[in-house]
């Protein structure tokens, strides 16, 4: 029962680019065989909807790279939207956006500080922060949705430039910056180093605490951008919105090749992970299959992705052990 042989066949197919291959196949299938998938309306809908999760997933990826986890994202989406909505009617657009981003990021900084400087597990810290974020959002909003009047901000939520939604353009910019940052900045490389071998990173003179603090703060910052996109699209702030978004983002990171033990994950993979779920949901909707299957399919994909990476890494270990005798 407990042999991995049955899964061996996956080994060949799953490598570094497995997620991209799977995604391309599914998209190709959808383009040719799923009616209306290629329609402008449908593609727009996917882009609008999943760009929000994508911002969160990028933030989640940074935290997962350090070997941590951020459960507070969903409630931070709500908090951001509420701060923005409430502040906008009092102080105007720009101060409101700043306040929302700063407020949300402050909670992230708190999580990061606790992760870096205490011995509590990140799971518990961000779980606590999940409650704190949700509570603050409800408190500020008096537990009711807060409509956003600002017409300009609302129009941003639907703005399309050269056929691409503004949020997606923003997302692409963030992706490019993040890829550059992770490849070319010391802090970016250190995020990988800390998650991959913290002790070795520390001995190399890297301030591992600073790196962790940075990752959690960035996660909150990116989440707040996601929250603003969400609020603009919705035209209001909602204290109960964003529930379980953290699970969606974690799922996307994992399916995109990230490892909860740290050190593994990429921007491309993460975005592909988000897209994969988006495309699958869309296919299910358009094919008239009950949307209720979405969760089941998502779950199976998560398991397959993790099982594949597990087997992949096992192979490496055994090769290492054999280096001397072969």
């Amino acid at each position: 029962m407990c042999r991995n042989h049955s899964l061996k066949t996956f080994r060949e197919g799953f490598n570094k680019y497995s997620i991209l291959i799977v995604l391309s196949i599914i998209i190709l299938y959808a383009l040719f065989f799923v009616p209306h998938f290629a329609s402008r309306i449908n593609l727009m809908a996917i882009m609008f909807q999943y760009s929000i999760i994508a911002f969160l997933a990028l933030g989640q990826m940074l935290v997962v790279l350090t070997g941590g986890i951020d459960l507070s994202q969903g409630s931070l989406v709500a908090l951001t939207s509420i701060i923005a909505a409430v502040a906008m009617s009092h102080f105007g657009l720009v101060p409101a956006l700043l306040l929302a981003v700063i407020g949300c990021t402050l909670l992230g900084i708190t999580s990061g500080t606790l992760v870096a400087y205490t011995k509590m597990p990140p799971f518990i810290i961000t779980l606590g922060m999940l409650g704190i974020g949700r509570g603050l959002a409800k408190f500020i909003a008096n537990a009711k949705p807060v409509p956003i009047q600002d017409p300009f901000f609302r129009s941003l939520g639907r703005k399309v430039i050269f056929g691409i939604p503004l949020s997606v353009i923003l997302l692409l910019i963030v992706c490019v910056v993040l890829v550059w940052f992770l490849r070319n900045r010391r802090l970016g490389r250190y995020i990988y180093a800390v998650g991959s071998n913290e002790e070795s990173a520390r001995l190399s003179g890297i301030n591992t605490k600073k790196v962790k603090l940075f990752a959690y703060s960035m996660s909150a910052l990116l989440t707040s951008i996601g929250g603003l996109v969400w609020a603009a699209r919705l035209g209001s702030g909602s204290p109960i919105g964003g529930a379980n978004y953290e699970m969606e983002s974690i799922a996307a990171v994992i399916v995109g090749g990230g490892s909860l033990s740290g050190g593994k994950g990429s921007v491309t993979g993460t975005i592909a992970g988000v897209l994969l779920f988006g495309v699958i949901n869309s296919i299910l909707n358009l094919s008239g299959i009950s949307p209720f299957w979405q969760g089941a399919i998502k779950g199976v994909f998560i398991l397959l992705a993790v099982a594949a990476s597990q087997i992949h890494s096992k192979k490496n270990v055994s090769m290492e052990r054999w280096a001397e005798n072969e």
Binding site: M120, L127, G131, G135, L136
Partner: peptide, 19 residues
């Protein structure tokens, strides 16, 4: 205390206990 802020209090209590 409005039920709204209750999740926050719960969050703080969890953090405190584990700390």
């Amino acid at each position: 205390v409005s039920p709204s802020i209750q999740p926050a209090v719960k969050g703080i209590i969890i953090l405190l206990a584990v700390y």
